[in-house]
Design a binder for these strands. Structure first.
Length: 594
RNA sequence: GUAUCCGUAGCUCAGUUGGAUAGAGCACCUGCCUUCGGAGCAGGGUGUCGGGGGUUCGAAUCCCUCCGGAUAUGCCA
């Protein structure tokens, strides 16, 4: 917010206290105090290295009392509450059309190229609510960064190989009767997921039998006994056959993976998820080994007595990490070293971001530390955006146990609810494009629910409570937008043009709304800087609420004077533009009417 | 065991580089559709900010400690 009085005050104090730098960032005045804006002199006194904040407040008041823009400056403790002339407040906030959105973009020299990787699904099962959170956060973060002025490259890395895929394949061979998604009338990812569950069921059965026949194995974990079961060995054998390019195995793998990819494409389409490029793990999993070899020669890694290649960190918190098994094969982190280098080579970004669950915090610390030890100067610009899990009232989601909220089902359900709600509100005449509207509203509700919470927070999703269209929701913000759109449409038909009278916007609700609008650039920037969509989402809710309050108190189309009407229309238009910009930054589409 | 994160209203969550009387939404209650869209607005009650100690003019926020929870601590991914 560029407020003239704050700038003048800063210059005055800089001269008086002989300072080069001084930032005065007035806040919205709390409701219980009279004023538009507040200067906090506790904070100011620290910058001035002044002992007494109360005395600074008196100084501030004295200066502001003589300022042209100020109607009144009241001191309360070390706070100075300021009432501005409406015309001054509007001049500094909303008067210049387009200025706020222009200021939301970072200056050129601070713009960077950021590569963001997210989604990263496995191809053995359909996506669930956890993936929905990942996809939503990934897309929104990318979009927020772009809206703030950065160049962003969206990347997916699909785990299309490995033991889990073999499990689905084994189950398909045994129980599938050569069926297909077409024959079952089912999305391919769901069909493959069914076989993953079928595999687990058979595995449990064999485990139980094994334990019954061998009481001495009782203290072994399920994982320990994997290769002791027939079906476990079968999956393992299939993985080896896959690695040896066995023709039949590869053929089945291709077929089933394609089913899953087709299913994912549909889910992504509905969510509006897109990528510049999708890496396939089957094509990258062998990367990284040569770098380990190179690092071994340079002494970054060493051979341990047991034959494993390891890195010993100086930081005891990181300890020691195996990077190649004693048989010379790669581990997870080795592949990630390879793909990180690949992405760096392919796109040469200033920063790489991974949207990956917080359970992998340590993994990424180790990965980044290894890359740093290898001497890559860009290793300092790698960010693990760790987001929290989604839990259900019944506990954690587990695909194998079928205790998941399926992504497609959830979206279906949301759209149905949105449709019902739309019909209910519409009254006698059902709106055109009902399905399209319902889709937009449904996705707004779903995405906003996920984005208004700080990504780091572990969240609880209650399917019974489902998703609301009232209160602090996406549809609430959409509704405020649609009301403004409706109002502006009507205004176009009325031809009583007048120059806006800014001095007439005297009501607290008008001033507060204008200030809120002017806060947008810093809110968007904060959201981008902190990789936190909730900052922006909360702001948009506040803006929509402030508009609703203003809308009740201040007639716009029916304003007493044409000049007042013009000013209020301008203010409303400003709110509309910001809502659209902000919602789009959250990857939420707007509706001109709903 | 150790490390990291978390514990705020009945519920879901904001607020945490220390600042005014700790905020929203849901739920519950009361009003408001013959004036711009009631998916809305206005009002009502709710708190040992997990407990205890410390630093400070000032602590939900920083430090210590205890309690409770999650995650990690693989030659799994």
């Amino acid at each position: 917010m560029k407020l003239t009085f704050a700038n003048d005050l800063a210059n005055e104090l800089k001269a008086k206290y002989n300072l080069d730098e001084l930032t005065i960032a007035p806040e919205i005045c709390p409701p219980n105090f009279a004023g538009d804006l507040t200067v906090n002199c506790f904070v100011l006194a620290k910058q001035l290295k002044a002992r007494n904040p109360i005395a600074v407040a008196a100084e501030v008041k004295q200066f502001l009392d003589g300022h042209d823009d100020v109607v009144e400056a009241q001191v309360a403790k070390a706070f100075v509450n300021i009432t501005l002339k409406p015309e001054a407040l509007m001049r500094d906030t909303i008067q210049n059309e387009g200025q706020i959105l222009a200021e939301a973009v970072l200056p050129k020299q601070e713009q960077r190229h950021i590569l963001i990787e997210f989604s990263a699904p496995n191809t053995n099962k359909p996506q669930h609510l956890g993936h929905v959170r990942n996809n939503t956060i990934g897309m929104a973060t990318a979009s927020i960064l772009e809206s703030a002025g950065h160049q962003v490259t969206r990347i997916n890395l699909v785990n299309d190989r490995g033991i889990h895929i073999c499990k689905s394949m084994i189950a398909y061979q045994r129980f599938g009767n050569n069926t297909t998604p077409e024959r079952e009338g089912k999305k391919g990812d769901h069909l493959v997921g069914d076989f993953y569950v079928a595999y687990d069921k058979e595995y449990r059965k064999q485990l139980a039998e094994l334990r019954k026949n061998n009481p001495d194995l009782a203290d072994k974990s399920d994982d320990d006994l994997f290769l002791n079961t027939e079906i476990g060995r079968a999956a393992q054998d299939m993985l080896i056959a896959w690695e040896n390019n066995d023709e039949d195995v590869r053929e089945l793998w291709k077929t089933m993976n394609q089913w899953v990819f087709d299913g994912f494409a549909e889910t992504y389409r509905r969510m509006g998820v897109t990528f510049k490029h999708t890496y396939l793990e089957s094509e990258t999993y062998m990367l990284g080994k040569d770098i380990i070899q190179d690092g071994l020669e340079r002494g970054v890694f060493k051979k341990r007595e047991d034959g494993a290649t390891v890195i010993d960190f100086e930081d005891p918190a990181l300890g020691s990490k195996v990077v190649l098994r004693s048989d010379g094969t790669s581990v997870y982190v080795t592949q990630d070293i390879g793909t990180t280098l690949l992405k760096q080579k392919d796109y040469n970004p200033d920063q790489q971001i991974w949207v990956v669950g917080d359970e992998q915090i340590r993994h990424f610390k180790v990965l980044f530390a290894i890359l740093k030890a290898l001497g890559y100067e860009w290793a300092d610009n790698l960010t693990h955006m760790a987001y929290g899990m989604v839990n259900l009232p019944t506990g954690k989601m587990k695909s194998r146990e079928g205790t998941v909220v399926d992504a497609d089902d959830l979206i279906d359900e949301m759209e149905e609810l949105a449709k019902q709600a739309t019909l209910e509100k519409a009254g006698d005449t059902p709106p055109e494009n009902l399905d399209e509207r319902a889709q937009t509203i449904a996705m707004a509700a779903l995405k906003f629910m996920l984005l208004k919470v700080n990504p780091k927070t572990t969240i609880m999703f209650d399917p019974q409570a489902s998703i609301k269209f009232e209160g602090d929701t996406g549809p609430y913000v959409l509704y405020a937008y649609a009301r403004i759109a409706s109002m502006l449409r009507k205004a176009q038909d009325q031809e009583d043009e007048a120059a806006p009278d800014w001095s007439a916007l005297k009501d607290d609700s008008e001033k507060k709304l204008a200030i809120r609008c002017a806060l947008y650039p810093e809110m968007l920037q904060k959201s981008a800087r902190e990789l936190d969509s909730s900052t922006l989402a909360s702001y948009l809710l506040d803006l929509a609420k402030d508009f609703s309050t203003f809308y009740r108190i201040c007639p716009v189309l029916n304003a007493e004077e044409p000049a007042l009407k013009a000013a209020r229309l301008h203010l409303s238009k400003c709110v509309k533009d910001i809502l659209k910009h902000g919602l789009n930054a959250l990857t939420i589409n707007t509706l001109e009417s709903m």
